[in-house]
């Protein structure tokens, strides 16, 4: 399997060239956003942030981070379940022109349409690989809403290198999750018809 190297910031044409099943290796800046950040950003009309997320890569992650010798150090930082963000993500992609969403478990039809309409992809990284993925964080560059939302829900800006992921939803309307759901549902019907 060929691995595709991606370096942030991602441009639209390189994102649109990706297909489901592609294995990618990501380097550069990514920022975390989970439940509270999504709700907050979808409710607030204008917002001032300490760093710009426009055209960025959003990571569904609530990491463990500790301050060691005055520096934030990521202890464990695997993906959280993306499904919970489905009610917000299409709006986030549209508003911030996001080029990639990283998470686990896949997302639904609203997000899939937004990927196509605005030139974005969904990347699944490895669920539960907290230490492995935190070792791919070179540096914590910044954090937003730490005091207000807490460690897990804050928006962390990471500089990552060699961060592995698989394209499971592309910008052409394809979703590996949808395909696997369809196959497994067919299998279920087969089992049910024999019970």
């Amino acid at each position: 399997m060929v691995e595709i190297n991606l370096k942030t910031p991602l441009n639209e044409s390189s994102v649109r060239a990706l297909n489901i099943g592609d294995q990618v290796i990501l380097s550069g800046r990514i920022f975390t956003a989970r439940d509270m950040i999504h709700k907050y950003l979808c409710e607030i009309e204008s917002v001032t942030m300490p760093f710009d997320i426009t055209g960025g890569v959003l990571y569904h992650c609530g990491p463990i981070v500790r301050e060691i010798n005055g520096k934030y150090t990521v202890i464990s930082s695997g993906p959280t379940t993306s499904e919970r963000l489905e009610m917000y993500e299409a709006r986030m992609i549209k508003r911030f022109g996001l080029r990639a969403i990283i998470g686990k478990g896949g997302m639904g039809s609203d997000t899939l349409s937004a990927l196509r309409d605005f030139g974005c992809v969904y990347l699944q990284t490895i669920s539960g690989a907290g230490v492995y993925l935190s070792n791919r964080v070179k540096e914590v560059l910044d954090v937003w809403k730490l005091a207000e939302f807490g460690e897990s829900e804050a928006m962390w800006l990471f500089e990552v290198f060699d961060f592995p992921a698989i394209v499971t939803m592309d910008s052409k309307g394809n979703s590996l999750h949808k395909d696997i759901l369809a196959y497994s549902t067919k299998q279920r019907d087969e089992i049910f018809s024999n019970i």
Binding site: Q23, C61, G78, G128, A129, G130, V131, Y132, S134, P164
Partner: peptide
Amino acid sequence: KALEIILENIKLARKEGRPICQ
């Protein structure tokens, strides 16, 4: 590919004494 990383992660977590999953 995912399993390889999962197994590597288990090894790293044990060695470095850090939580397997965040």
